[in-house]
Nucleic acid binder design. Structure first.
Lengths: 338, 338
DNA sequence: CTGTTAGCGCCTTCAG
DNA sequence: CTGAAGGCGCTAACAG
């Protein structure tokens, strides 16, 4: 920086002034031009560490995730957060946590030590989290999860409305006997989606208690097994709603084996709109999209604009239905089996 | 830090000495203990920015990815790199790039400005990369890709051996007529795997030219379509080898529709060992595992131990075969159709 | 064994 | 409109 000043024939402070336009200083156009030229010829770039030391802003946002490798949505969250943070001139320090509380605390300490300007906590399963109080002064936001006492503002998918939307995809096509193959029964999302499903059923003038509901585990195998079981029972429903797209793939497999065509013989809907899966199976799967990308963008925006202070405890983002080809009107008679 | 020194009755340098054990200084045990106590009661933690300014080491490694959201392997790479970097006391600054060269340069500049101690370039499709020379002094490593003139050491999956392993899964079971449904023809990985496939065929005393080879696109839909097409042709092979696991899922779907059982009627192998997919379909898919996690760990280790200087241009990590249930000996007669 | 001193590279009052 | 000076929090010679 001194070098730049020397080359431009000004002091280093002047260089600083032109580099940080905002500094309440006014610089003559000629000087500015000379400085900028010197910057260019020297290929000078300010050292962010030094700047951070002085300004106490590091232009760095911490993103702590759990199970980053386990879930296919981590990428969408990182991408969304990165994009808005980057547009704001900051970068993302990504750390992964196991579920173990000690690691969480260590990770947060490390982030606070840098220090980062803010912290985004991304939880992959919308679980409850307990958070160390080490993040005293650091603005923090929870993405896709919530804390016990709403200690930290959170952004979540509106899973209840999502469950409702998924059911309505089927109801609107005329289905009245729907099997809901849910995900892991313990998960927050599963319970919320189920409530949405039941609400949609009741809204349609039907009795939620009449529908068949089976608990799966969000994996392909449970969609497969549960569907096979359904096929052995009397009164096969005209449609299957799955806990997620992977379970729907399992259902596709079981249905194909049984010689049942989708959607002619039976309709299927998924959940998640998982990349490279939902849109690519045959027929393309109607589903409901999880807003990981949008949540991450939203959270990052709050954080870079410094607006986490006035945020409500929870903000819900919609899970829009996506209509593809796996839903049709139910057959008049009973579906013809294999 | 001055506060700590005051409380412990020593100077701030002494505090620094006890905090950085290594500093070539010796400290009496009594002093050390007093300092440590003061640190504890004050809950003091050194500011890494200040330390970084002084030491020119920021304990930060840049990880630049492309298409982080697009591929399911990004998580494994981030996780692997994070784990070893974290164990070494560093953190990961993750930035995403589009394919556009300008963005790449901006991203690298930003990383160099911090400065980061090293940069890991993770490419998601083993493509060639062109790299800006802005990363003058920063040790850099390429993960899952390579540069035009081997300008930067790279770690890659041994795709040729992987293709060979996948084919051998089938050959060892006795298959002699294998259809290979490849991924995108343009990709480096596709060509390498194909070479491995052909080598395995020749090694088995067969003629590679006799096998049917069709180009797909790595997505479920192409596995489905290509398999359906195969089923309309005379001389159905006894086994299908797929470009990746998603294509194998497409093959499963098409085979199930046709009433063909896996592996009784026809065997299938995938590639990637994609999480939550390969192991979960029915029957569980035999495949070959891509070593993203291992490559990331390996690369991170080189970088934190400062050993990138003496590295060969390319290091190949194995793609181990994983045997599950989708391969069996071929039927004696022609497979029985639907 | 411990304290003093001088910066790391930048920003920002305060004078001129 | 520009320059001088001080300091952000820490480390590393160098004295003592």
């Amino acid at each position: 920086m001194a070098d730049v000043g020397r080359l431009a024939g000004v002091s280093s402070s002047t260089v600083s002034f032109v580099l940080n336009e905002n500094s309440g200083q006014t610089i003559s156009n000629r000087t500015r031009k000379r400085v900028l030229e010197a910057v260019a010829t020297l290929d000078y770039r300010p050292n962010r560490t030094a700047r951070g030391l002085r300004t106490r802003r590091t232009a760095t946002i911490g993103l702590v995730t759990d199970e980053i490798a386990a879930e296919p949505f981590a990428g969408a969250i990182i991408l969304g957060a990165h994009e808005v943070v980057w547009a704001h001139g900051s970068l993302l320090l990504v750390v992964n946590t196991t579920r173990d509380g000690r690691t969480v605390r260590e990770v947060i300490d490390e982030l606070v030590d840098r220090p980062v300007d803010a912290i985004l906590f991304a939880v992959m399963g919308a679980r409850r989290m307990v958070l160390p109080d080490a993040l005293k002064g650091v603005p923090s936001l929870l993405v896709n999860g919530y804390t016990a006492g709403n200690l930290m503002p959170a952004v979540l998918p509106d899973e209840v409305a999502g469950g409702r939307s998924a059911a309505q995809l089927l109801l609107a096509a005329g289905h009245r006997r729907i099997a809901y193959l849910t995900g892991r029964a313990e998960s927050w999302a599963t319970r919320a989606r189920l409530r949405g499903f039941q609400a949609a059923i009741e809204d349609a003038g039907l009795n939620a208690g009449d529908q068949v509901i089976r608990a799966g585990n969000y994996r392909v195998d449970s969609g497969y097994e549960l569907t096979r079981q359904l096929l052995t029972e009397p009164g096969l429903p005209t449609a299957i709603m799955c806990g997620n797209d992977r379970m729907a793939v399992g259902a596709y497999l079981a249905l194909a084996e049984a010689g049942l065509r989708i959607p002619e013989d039976i309709s299927v809907v998924g959940y998640d709109d998982q990349a490279d899966l939902a849109a690519r199976v045959n027929p393309p799967l109607s589903t409901v999209r999880l807003p990981h990308y949008q949540m991450a963008r939203w959270a990052a925006r709050q954080v870079v604009t410094g607006s986490v202070a006035g945020l409500p405890a929870r903000t819900y983002l919609p899970c829009p239905p996506v209509t593809r080809k796996s839903v049709a009107a139910p057959r008049k008679g009973a579906p013809r089996k294999g």
